[in-house]
Design a protein around this nucleic acid. Structure first.
Lengths: 340, 340
DNA sequence: CTCAAAAATGTAACCGCTTACATTTGTTAA
DNA sequence: TTAACAAATGTAAGCGGTTACATTTTTGAG
């Protein structure tokens, strides 16, 4: 049978309270020789505290919940990796729940919260969800939200600087490469990242004095297939743009496919810009020009934030923090330079 | 304050035992009208059982642990997704632990087992690890191992049919495409998947009466960079092979890079074959010929196996199951047909 | 050496649910 | 009607820790 705290107390001739104190993290008042004796016996019996009992007694689980949207591709692996690494070094376990055919984000979240299964939650919200606000308001476990969203200002938020990323790369395309006929394939309409990327795009155009053409803004869905479809539509327009700015690399890859099958050469006939800088982009030919997003940084930062919150749970005074992760530009060969 | 089972018992004028029975899963002996009353009050109070208390009382957690090797790329996302989906529908939570700079597989495993944090574990072991056997022997939580490994025959195992996959594609290359000068870039020497893929490769050659050249078997490390390096070495041999079989797609992608920079055209000057069929391969040009591995199937199958085990925990008689997930061939354009 | 304060340890309730066993209530057959 | 048995419910002891409060031991100033 597994050794319990009672066994140790017995063998050491002390009470369970003393054993608990000697073995606990917080520096408790135990005489050094007593502590040593307890530690030794504990080792000898190969004692491991039962975390279930500890959880119940302390109403705490040392676990962090990570709620992800429908998982696909590199992106999420990086997030999980970043979160896991920080969680682990902070002494937390990681419970993940991704939404899929049988479950949505809110359900995952509720599952965590209702059962007090985790001490805190990292929540990645790609787009607005009806019940979400209500759920968040009803349970008061610390939450860190990953997304570029302002409806949740009272929570800690970690977001990619989508606006800046899009603005920079479009600005570069205009100013340094002399382009002005730039179209965009957005993500799904409700998606926050997509919305901000679009704002960056329009702002850069506007600041450069370029009129925005609504017919050059096509809605995509962040998938490769979706990119293919949208690109085909753009390439069959009577008045074609010179550049397609896809709201993510997946769709940019779709553009490569469509261009290839429609006989458009990149970058001579059509230029492509992506967003995310996933591995895939490095293998597209010509190399994809895109916006670098430090994905695992997002996971790490949110976890750090959450853990800080958990460590100061009583101190309600700390203001919600909003951290923006900045992006960078990756210059590939998928956008040509125009001679003006 | 959150409602407890006591509050319900009070309000309903029954004992906590009855409430517990009425609310529990197993069809207990409670009079219908009593059950109804309890259910009603439970709803009214918005009662949610405290899972921590339940865990302690039942010494069970309804959680499955998933231990992954160093996470990178598509592959693992698919596994997590598959596991999560099945775990969820079986009423289990998913706790993941990946090894990384600060932790290795055995540590993750120990963490789960020592603290009785999970009811069972799904363990992905890429290569032999000293303490592993010992750890597994010492704790008797149900374990499902994902890998092509025979040292652990007494556990449930789910494995990719690496041998068959490699054999088939090499055989196809020989028989249908008339190649005979086929080299291989393996994975890290200790890696089980790699070992079996190599066996499939050598068996196919041998069966076709082709002599195996040791100098055409180069060790790689499953990374893109590693593939690049190994490929360069092969391409600078005095006697070059016509085909390079990379033990995974990542390395195959590296081969593309190396071939490009050394001026070798695929498939005219050198042919490339991969393994895994990750998304990336679809974007290589020419399209990569590779072995399809149904990754999320692996996750799903192992989880089903584990849950079955957990549901029949007492029944020790069930023999360890060894399930092989079969692979398929994806024919791209990276291997030319020789006229013999 | 004495005594008050500080340090160390002990006692036992508690976290909220489950469940073996005891008790009460209901049902059925003679 | 009643004995015998089944069904429904109650009692209370866990599960294995934590911790408020009580008690004992140690320490050190006077």
């Amino acid at each position: 049978m597994k050794a319990t705290i009672y066994d140790i107390a017995n063998k050491a001739g002390v009470s369970t309270a003393t054993v608990s104190r000697a073995l606990g993290d917080k520096q408790e008042t135990v005489r050094p020789e007593t502590r040593d004796r307890i530690l030794q016996i504990s080792n000898q019996l190969n004692y491991r505290p039962n975390s279930l009992a500890k959880n119940l007694a302390k109403s705490t689980t040392s676990a962090i919940g990570l709620v992800l949207p429908e998982i696909q591709g590199d992106f999420y692996t990086e997030i999980v990796k970043g979160v896991d690494e920080i969680a682990f070094s902070g002494g937390y376990h990681l419970i993940v729940a991704s939404s899929h055919s049988r479950r949505n984000i809110v359900e995952s979240l509720l599952g965590f919260m209702r059962e007090s299964l985790v001490d805190g939650v990292i929540l990645m919200i790609p787009s607005m969800n009806g019940h979400l606000e209500e759920v968040l308001a009803n349970y008061k476990i610390p939450v860190v939200i990953i997304n570029d969203i302002h409806a949740f200002d009272k929570y800690d938020i970690v977001s990619i600087d989508n606006f800046q990323g899009a603005y920079s790369i479009i600005n570069y395309t205009i100013k340094s490469l002399n382009h002005s006929k730039i179209s965009m394939i957005t993500g799904p309409s409700g998606n926050y990242d997509s919305q901000m990327r679009k704002k960056g795009y329009t702002a850069a155009l506007k600041d450069a004095g370029i009129t925005i053409r609504k017919d050059w803004i096509i809605e995509g869905d962040f998938t490769i297939k979706g990119g293919e479809l949208a690109c085909s539509r753009i390439l069959s327009l009577k008045e074609k743009p010179d550049v397609i700015f896809a709201a993510n690399d997946n769709m940019a890859a779709g553009c490569y496919n469509a261009s290839e099958s429609l006989g458009f050469k990149i970058p001579e006939d059509i230029c492509i810009i992506g967003f995310d800088h996933i591995e895939l982009g490095n293998f597209l030919r010509p190399k994809l020009t895109t916006v670098h997003v430090p994905v695992s940084e997002i996971g790490k930062t949110s976890t750090k934030l959450l853990i800080k919150r958990l460590r100061n749970k009583d101190d309600k005074s700390i203001e919600p923090q909003h951290i923006k992760i900045s992006t960078g530009i990756i210059i590939g060969d998928s956008v040509s330079k125009l001679n003006n």
